[in-house]
Simulated assay, not measured.
Amino acid sequence: MLRSEHYLRLLPATTPAFAAAPAPFSCPLPYRGATRLRLPRTRTPRLRGEPSSTLRASAVPDAVAPLAPEMLQREVARTLADQAVARLGPRLLPSAVPEDVAEFRNGAGNALGSLDVRRGAPRSSIDFMLQSSLHCKVPNGAIDITSILIFLNTATDAPHFLLELIQGSPTSIVVVLDLLPRKDLALHPDYLQKYYENTRLDEQRAKIEELPQACPYRSPSLFVRSACSPTAVLVTIDCGQGGEGALEEIVQGRLATVAKDVLQIWLDSCADSTTEMDDTERDCLLKRDQIVRSKSIEVDLTASLPRMFDPDVSSRIISEIRKAFGVQEP
């Protein structure tokens, strides 16, 4: 949930959100060169457990509770989450997210979401795994944001994993996929080589950026941009008017495959990593992590969620994410 501010700042009801959203490329021809990662067609997945129409954080009766539409980006995220859980297994504790945060919606019924957080088990290098999904209707469409974050603790200095998919129209999607560095790469060239050069992550970035429908996405936050690695996938994929089929082909094809491969690289090179550090190094690492986490909440959540959800709902969500991030109230 680190990059949605670009879209969510457009959410006031009087704002035609999609007119202001990036539309950098227009090419309705589907890309057919990638191997398709076949994903099951199901109802919109919850972040934990079985699908349910009960979205508890609302005064609207359950009988009329709306469901978010089926979207391939959520199927991609669910497939990646299953891939991570299969590998991490006992290193993740069961979810302890309250029911009124696990699923939520606003009183008007035009915004709904889900959140799941699984903390790392004792003596594990996993700090937490966070999954979230947000759907918000606006006057001329809807905004959908799907996120997976897997953060490590100070048992290692290996990068964190981040995926965020932000869909602002049926034919375009913003993709943020990265292994977030935890050191200054210019000061630590061995770190750059170990986690980014040797793993050939730049080849994964190139597979997305070479798509004719892709162009660079730049967050309006300089801090957010500075937190990413040079191999980050930061693109808007825009298939132009009538390009719904082309976008679907890309999402379940090349995008799904690249995301799966990047996660596998993270699982192989980072998830099992341990690093010998003295107290000073560990303190610096912890301080850097805390700054990134605090700033992401400040830039994104506290400015955006209250525009989508009622104050009591947004405060519960932010409070639970602060708890996962280990960030106290300001």
Rank of each mutant, 00 (worst) to 15 (best):
D283S: 14
A121T: 07
P61D: 12
P45I: 09
H135E: 12
P28E: 12
V235S: 14
A214S: 15
C136T: 11
E298Q: 14
D300V: 08
D312P: 02
E50S: 13
Q73G: 07
R36I: 15
S172K: 05
I166N: 04
I148V: 10
D62F: 15
N198F: 07
A214G: 05
L134P: 00
S229P: 01
A81P: 00
G109T: 05
P28N: 11
Q213W: 02
R205Q: 15
A57T: 01
P61Q: 09
S125F: 04
M1A: 09
A232S: 14
I145N: 04
W266T: 09
T15F: 05
A271S: 13
P12R: 06
A86I: 01
S147D: 15
D116C: 15
V117N: 03
V299R: 02
I148D: 02
A158L: 05
L72Y: 03
T280V: 08
P139W: 04
I148N: 07
E298P: 04
T14K: 08
R118K: 10
R288G: 10
A259V: 12
L301F: 03
A20I: 01
A206K: 12
Y196A: 11
A324F: 01
D178F: 05
S269Q: 12
L263E: 04
V174C: 13
L80F: 06
R316S: 13
L163H: 02
F128N: 03
P170W: 03
L115H: 04
P30V: 06
R205K: 15
S133Y: 09
T35F: 03
K287M: 14
G245T: 03
V262E: 08
P51I: 05
S314V: 02
D238R: 01
A19S: 13
S147R: 01
A96P: 00
A102H: 01
S229L: 07
Y191E: 09
A256H: 00
E244H: 05
F161P: 03
E203F: 06
H135Q: 12
A186L: 14
A155D: 08
R118V: 09
L10H: 07
V85S: 12
S229I: 02
E281T: 11
A303T: 11
S95P: 03
Y217K: 02
Q241F: 07
A303M: 08
D278K: 04
F151S: 13
D312I: 08
D272N: 14
T171H: 03
A65T: 07
K295C: 10
V176L: 13
S221P: 01
D272H: 07
R316D: 10
M277W: 04
T231W: 08
D82K: 13
